[in-house]
Design a protein around this nucleic acid. Structure first.
Lengths: 148, 148
DNA sequence: AGTGAAATTTTAGCAAA
DNA sequence: TTTGCTAAAATTTCACT
């Protein structure tokens, strides 16, 4: 993981459809060398996958909300329970007053209520506090370049 | 946006490196037809971009935190201020007790403190409450398929 | 909108330094 | 690790349905 790898990652995050020739040119390497570096980044799991960023509104998920979840037991084994709810895009065990923080995308506030009901049904959950997002100001991939 | 488009999106989210031939086969279309549909999905902005999912830990950002931000004024015009801090990966204006919710990835808790200081310096910010993530249970793209 | 096929570009594997 | 070369594969365009 040197500086060149970081630049390659940044370029790929911005546009993963570009050719290795273009990618190589951006860092002063041949297409073959760029290809080999990217192959290793994938192999080592630095690049977890190549994917498309889908507009949530375009697929009918206009409501974004965060839900703070209180529990009466350790939630570390509940990954499957949260993953079983497709509207949940993130779930994290947190330090502090609540136990789990969940990010949810739904079609409507009515659907959000459904999701809250399903969360309540998870073993150990004792309470939820939903926060609805009014406007997203920033949404972007992790910076591969804030290491220096 | 019919059922076929949704299946194409789901497949691309999982692996955007696969060929249009494979993609077409998954939905019972020729490579050309699959390509044309994906081209239109891009054109219409349903697919915002093709990108790589980078492991945050591998690029040195092991700490994930959410920060609730209180403010004394409307924060809707502050997108640039938040975007100027590279460690901020998401910033949302929210309904409820706080004003803005921010998602932050940093190399260490020390760096998190730096970020909090920079957030404090943004005009109108009157307070911050950081919540550190201990473990991530779920992290995945929006489901393109919970519409029916 | 979709098909099939041709022309072009890109990828991926290999020998050499 | 990088380069240049090359065969194989994928993308992109087009005439036709």
């Amino acid at each position: 993981m040197d500086r060149i790898d970081r630049v390659l990652l940044a370029h790929l995050q911005q546009d993963a459809t570009q050719s290795y020739a273009a990618l190589g040119q951006a860092v002063g390497l041949s297409a073959g060398a760029a290809h080999e570096r990217v192959r290793k980044l994938r192999e080592r799991g630095v690049i977890r996958r190549t994917t498309v960023d889908v507009d949530p509104v375009a697929v009918g998920n206009a409501v974004l909300a965060y839900v703070m979840i209180d529990s009466v037991s350790w939630m570390g084994d509940s990954a499957k329970d949260f993953a079983a709810i497709p509207e949940i895009v993130e779930a994290h065990v947190i330090a502090g007053s609540a136990s789990v923080l969940v990010k949810v995308r739904t079609a409507s506030t009515g659907r959000l209520q459904d999701v809250l009901r399903r969360i309540y049904a998870i073993n150990g959950v004792s309470g939820t506090r939903a926060t609805v997002v009014l406007e997203t100001l920033v949404e972007r991939p992790v910076s591969a370049q804030n290491q220096e």
